[in-house]
Design a protein around this nucleic acid. Sequence first.
DNA 1: AAACAACAGTTGTATATACAACGATTAAAC
DNA 2: GTTTAATCGTTGTATATACAACTGTTGTTT
Lengths: 177, 177
Amino acid sequence: MRNTTFNIFLSNHFKNYSTFVHTIVVDTMKIEDIIKSKVISLELKTVLNLLHTSNIVQDKTSEVLKPFDLSSEQFNVLRILRGQKGVPASLSCVQERMICKMSNTTRLVDKLIAKDMVQRSICENNRRKVDIVITQKGLDILKQLDAPMKALNDSVIENLSTQETETLNELLDKIRS
Amino acid sequence: MRNTTFNIFLSNHFKNYSTFVHTIVVDTMKIEDIIKSKVISLELKTVLNLLHTSNIVQDKTSEVLKPFDLSSEQFNVLRILRGQKGVPASLSCVQERMICKMSNTTRLVDKLIAKDMVQRSICENNRRKVDIVITQKGLDILKQLDAPMKALNDSVIENLSTQETETLNELLDKIRS
DNA sequence: AAACAACAGTTGTATATACAACGATTAAAC
DNA sequence: GTTTAATCGTTGTATATACAACTGTTGTTT
């Protein structure tokens, strides 16, 4: 009863079971139901919807990458390096392009080096920087992943028309602007 | 040159600098630029846009919660428990409603117990289950967070009209359907 | 050119998360 | 009613992440 806006958050369906003393209420509402319900404010619903949908996509991505023993951020870094077309990238350059701006790109790259997917060397023009390049092995693995990842991305928007997809992108851009 | 779809991923602007031997290319494209560029496919753009926007909202949330020493999932659990209005929730019930369906709700609740924000007891009707309830301290902290969190959620959609916000929710729902 | 500040990465430490194995309890099968 | 299977949580272990302190390099000031 303290705060209307939030007390109605996650209000439930209740199934009633009779017991010897009390009426036990068991609820069955999941995050999906909450988002689609009308009991929460539009702004909270939108935030939950955004985060939840993103998590689902993230999970699907991890699923695709699991057989390759890659985390989604490791994959992302490989993809960034491939986009460099042979031009070495510094750590900070990689970091700027990562989805999560994660605090520790060093150790992420360490993992990729251990897998022989990237190489690291000191940048001769600025010895504070390191040059990171993707190896042939890294490229080979990315190539194997191209089809399944394309399929995954397609599946994300399969229920949307092209127009709807473009609208979605515009709305997301607006959120960040 | 291997795969058209992916080789164009994260293609760059190049600034040319003349050097004694090679032309060094330095690129300045950040994730924001990539998403708004036209060099990647619509489906990849959409996925990156979704994940990136979600991460930004997540970061803003963490920022608000930091002074209270709460992670966003801990906050989420507290909010779920408040929604129970005194009815104990089992771990699995909490888990279903969490944004991240995280593998370890036990330890997350442990942290909240250590902060005296929730209480745990064995459910007498089903001794496999545990009953979790929010404490007065937990409620007090949530109350302090209500205004800033509402402000945060509002800020997320501040650049969208009501109609646009509803459209966004519909499109996100469609992605998950 | 010496001193100071800014920059690019790295490392230490604490915490969080993922995943699988485990223990206890309840439900189902026979 | 005993055995088997399913459920609910917990714990161990390995890995990932967050945050701050630190090292080495470059840029700036005087």
